[in-house]
Nucleic acid binder design. Structure first.
Ligand SMILES: [Mn+2]
Ligand SMILES: [Mn+2]
Ligand SMILES: [Zn+2]
Ligand SMILES: [Zn+2]
Lengths: 147, 147
DNA sequence: AGCAATAGTGAGAATCAGTATCATTTGCGA
DNA sequence: TCGCAAATGATACTGATTCTCACTATTGCT
């Protein structure tokens, strides 16, 4: 998805949610788009100092409700946000248990298909209605392995 | 793993960590063993009112450090704990996004093998050292679907 | 353009899950 | 049995996140 298409799609989603696409929200989208994985509030504020913390919190919540971003919770005390899969495509996360950093990765379509089929079976037999799956790899990133 | 074997294994893990297997800790293990998925602190205290909240928090941390229990974070504001996979076997979670409840499920060995292989490839190409994977299904549980 | 009415902003206060403190109790070893 | 280190549990504290509210920006209308 090109930058302009992304922008158009975000605008449409916000419009559907009766929300304006303000300059704070544009800056947030831009910050998230620049990262190679979900970002913490601290990381966002560090990236764009013109964004006050309270505005970041409030607007990320609104963007999440509008389906523009997704909130990711790992094991550390900091929530992370990324653009919704609707905008970036389905993918997974490498989570470093040493430094907390999270980066994206993808699996090939065949593996995803196998997985979806197996998960669908499990959901059905538990009377569970599945919306999506979440698959993370936990371990140590290159930087932390070096140190 | 039988109840006695579980008890022995927990005792051994605590011994390795130079921790005693006290009655509070026995009650915690018992509460976790009784659940069909990871439990919140509130659920544990509700199950066994003889356990003060501060003792539950402290001992769950100690049990986690000893490798006896695992802390699970979903998307709500409450951490959940379950017996470590070392004791219960590898499995996954159905997470209800409506009520927050979490229940266990398993995939068959062939799917796990396919998955592990694909994940290993992804880890290697990212320079990431993987310890384990975490796979959750997000959706709506039977009870919430009814309501 | 002028003028409400409505939406968004941002500094600071409040909330609350989780952690730290510490006086008291427990249980292991000599 | 005694002494001591570990554990307990009531309570205070911490800090990420949420709430408040006076102020500013934008929209829609004439
Ligand atoms: Mn991602
Ligand atoms: Mn489980
Ligand atoms: Zn790392
Ligand atoms: Zn539910």
């Amino acid at each position: 998805m090109s930058l302009n298409d992304l922008d158009d799609e975000v605008a449409a989603l916000l419009d559907d949610a009766d929300q304006r696409y303000t300059s704070s929200r544009r800056r947030l989208i831009s910050a998230l788009q620049a990262g190679d994985g979900p970002l913490t509030i601290t990381q966002i504020v560090a990236t764009d100092a013109s964004l006050p913390q309270s505005t970041v919190y409030r607007n990320l919540t609104i963007l999440e409700e509008a389906g523009v971003v997704t909130r990711i919770v790992t094991s550390d005390d900091f929530a992370r946000y990324e653009l919704a899969e609707k905008l970036t495509g389905h993918h997974h996360h490498l989570i470093c248990t040493a430094c907390g950093d999270v980066v994206d990765f993808s699996l090939d379509a065949a593996v995803e298909a196998t997985l979806d089929k197996a998960l669908d079976g499990a959901a059905v037999s538990a009377g569970f209605t599945a919306d999506s799956h979440r698959l993370d790899l936990l371990g140590t990133c290159r930087d932390c392995a070096k140190a």
